[in-house]
Design a protein around this nucleic acid. Structure first.
Length: 318
DNA sequence: CGCCAGGCAACGG
DNA sequence: CCGTTGCCTGGC
């Protein structure tokens, strides 16, 4: 049985709201049952539950304190610090965005949203599945892969699967991969698995490397382009300055940060690109550098708030 | 049926 | 450099 390792009061919700953080869209293998969330982190199953503690005064329903308890299997002590990046100085980071009205509004609307750290190999495989599809499909692909190549774990009577190891995916045959509904992404899964096996994708090296150096290595892998590389860098390789630009963020830039299109070179963006125009590799690099210069070393946090803001505004359901 | 969804690689100007 | 095209898959 899972034992709680940590219980924290939910009163500092404005700086840390686990549920809204999970809901940010990057956490593909998290599910909610009743008041508990369960998530796959490599070979660990993580869980947190919100509980209401009644102070005894039953006449006053408002006189309750909410707590959140964290569990894990196998034991992963204080995983919440690792996964929710609780060691980041969130107040300082937020303060750094105080001059930006859009991000400030997102922070005001969605207090407690945290950038989440993902298990690096899982993160790589997850995002190479993310090309030209939607979140529901990504979830399905990853669940299928886990069901086929992971290890079954029963927790609270519910069935979970650990995330496949790089080795198991490296050894998988192509038809097994295709049976998971990943389509042409199978080739990219293979390329990442081989990269890990060969040492070309070494987590320690990539984590230690600079943003530019690590990105250069990632871009060599078939199936990893600008956007996917930036996601991997931000969510699992400690590159907080990474600012992944997907179609949602591109819309945000087009709507609120128009100047990034102009700032550069002799880019006569008079007729600013239509909102849904795809961004070329070169344009991505230019936009990326301009916006990272603007938001600074915690650009990834700004991206996270912007992404959530755009998706909420669009009332996307995932 | 066609179109779309959190990109990418391959190829021709 | 840029723009275009095809791509697995499932939902609408």
């Amino acid at each position: 049985m899972l034992q709680p390792f940590t219980t924290i009061p939910f009163s500092n919700q404005s700086l840390f709201n686990p549920q809204i953080s999970i809901n940010s869209g990057q956490m593909f293998l998290w599910e909610k049952f009743d008041n508990s969330w369960y998530g796959v982190y490599g070979n660990h199953i993580l869980k947190f539950s919100t509980t209401t503690i009644n102070n005894g005064d039953s006449s006053n329903n408002n006189n309750n304190n909410n707590n959140v308890e964290f569990f894990s299997f196998p034991e992963f002590k204080e995983w919440e610090k690792q996964v929710f990046r609780l060691d980041d100085d969130i107040e300082k980071i937020i303060a750094g965005f105080s001059n930006d009205v859009v991000v400030s509004e997102a922070i005001r609307r969605y207090p407690g949203l945290r950038l989440m750290r993902q298990e690096p190999h899982q993160c790589m495989f997850s995002f190479v599945c993310a090309s030209n599809t939607n979140i529901l499909m990504i979830r399905r692909m990853l669940k299928n892969l886990s069901r086929k190549f992971g290890v079954k774990v029963i927790i609270d009577g519910k069935e979970f699967f650990t995330f496949p190891t790089a080795d198991s995916l490296n050894k998988a045959n192509i038809n097994e991969l295709l049976s998971c509904g990943i389509g042409y992404r199978a080739k990219a899964i293979k390329a990442v698995a081989e990269g890990i096996a060969s040492g070309k994708l070494d987590i320690k090296e990539l984590t230690h490397a600079s943003y530019n150096d690590a990105k250069e290595q990632l871009l060599k892998i078939y199936g990893i382009g600008n956007k996917i590389a930036d996601c991997i860098l931000l969510f699992s390789l400690e590159k907080l300055e990474s600012f992944p630009i997907d179609v949602w963020i591109a819309r945000a830039l087009s709507s609120y940060y128009d100047w990034v299109f102009i700032e550069n070179k002799n880019r006569q963006k008079k007729e600013k690109k239509k909102i849904d125009d795809k961004i070329t590799f070169g344009q991505y690099n230019i936009l990326s550098e301009a916006i990272r210069n603007y938001f600074g070393k915690y650009s990834g946090y700004a991206q996270q708030y912007l992404f959530y803001y755009m998706r909420q505004n669009a009332a996307k359901k995932w």
